[in-house]
C-alpha cells in the first residue's frame, strides 16, 4: 500500500503543474532574467518561512541564498524548464531547513549552544508572551511536524500542496498535522 502511494502523487503533481499552474516563461530578451525577478519578489517571504523553521535570521538568509543558487545552477536564469518555481523554492527551503536543524541537533549533542544563538532581545520584545509560548511549544515538535504546521498555518497551503512540497502523501500530512496539534494542545494546556 505504501508503494502504491507515490505513483498517484507523482501523476497528480504532474497534472497540477501542467494544467493548473501556469508555466513561467522567461522574461523579455532585453529584460532581467526570470530568476532575478523571482529573487527580488520572493526573497523576503522565503527568509520569513525559513526563520519560522530554524528560528535564526542568519541561517535563514543562507538557506534562501543557497536555494536560489542551486536553482540557478540547475535550471539556468530563464527558468524555462521549471514548471512551478515557487513550489520548487518552497520545497528547497524546507529541505535545507531540515538539514540545518539536523546539523544543529547533532552539534548540540556534543557542544552546548553558546549564548549568542538565542533570539535577539529586540525580537523577543516584539513578541507577546502568548506568541513566545506558542513558538516555544513549536520547538518541541519534530522537524516534519514543524514543517507541516508552518506550511499549513503560515503559508496557508492545503494538505495536497503540503504533500507536494514535502514529497510525502496526503495521508502523511494529515496524520502528521493531527499528531502535532495533539502535542501542542498538551504543551499549551488547550482543550478541544
Amino acid at each position: 500500500m505504501i508503494l502504491a502511494i507515490p505513483l498517484p502523487s507523482l501523476l497528480l503533481r504532474r497534472l497540477r503543474s501542467s494544467v493548473s499552474t501556469p508555466v513561467r516563461r522567461p522574461s523579455a530578451p532585453d529584460g532581467p532574467p526570470a530568476i532575478n525577478e523571482l529573487y527580488h519578489a520572493r526573497r523576503l517571504g522565503l527568509v520569513r518561512l525559513a526563520v519560522l523553521m530554524v528560528d535564526d535570521l542568519a541561517t535563514a538568509e543562507d538557506i534562501v541564498q543557497d536555494v536560489f543558487a542551486a536553482l540557478y545552477r540547475r535550471h539556468g536564469a530563464d527558468l524555462r524548464t521549471v514548471a512551478d518555481p515557487e513550489a520548487y523554492l518552497t520545497s528547497g527551503v524546507m529541505n535545507a531547513a531540515r538539514s540545518a536543524l539536523r546539523r544543529r541537533r547533532t552539534a548540540r549533542a556534543y557542544v552546548p549552544p553558546p549564548a549568542g544563538t538565542a533570539p535577539a532581545a529586540e525580537e523577543q520584545m516584539l513578541l507577546a508572551d502568548g506568541d513566545r509560548e506558542v513558538l516555544g511549544a513549536l520547538g518541541e515538535l519534530t522537524v516534519r511536524q514543524r514543517q507541516v504546521v508552518v506550511l499549513r498555518y503560515w503559508s496557508e497551503l492545503s494538505e495536497q500542496e503540503i504533500a507536494d512540497v514535502l514529497h510525502v502523501s496526503r495521508g502523511t500530512v494529515k496524520s502528521t498535522a493531527s499528531r502535532a496539534l495533539t502535542i501542542l494542545r498538551g504543551l499549551l494546556g488547550e482543550r478541544r
Binding site: 526573497r43 520569513r48 499549551l188
Partner: peptide, 29 residues
C-alpha cells in the same frame, strides 16, 4: 483556539523580519 494562536504566533514571528533586517545580497546570476 489553538489554530488561531498558532497563526498569530507564526505571523508575529515571521513579520518581525523585515526587508531592512536582511543582509544585502545579490541574485545568483
Amino acid at each position: 483556539n489553538l489554530e488561531a494562536r498558532l497563526r498569530a504566533a507564526l505571523s508575529a514571528r515571521a513579520l518581525s523580519v523585515s526587508a531592512d533586517d536582511l543582509q544585502p545580497a545579490v541574485p545568483p546570476t
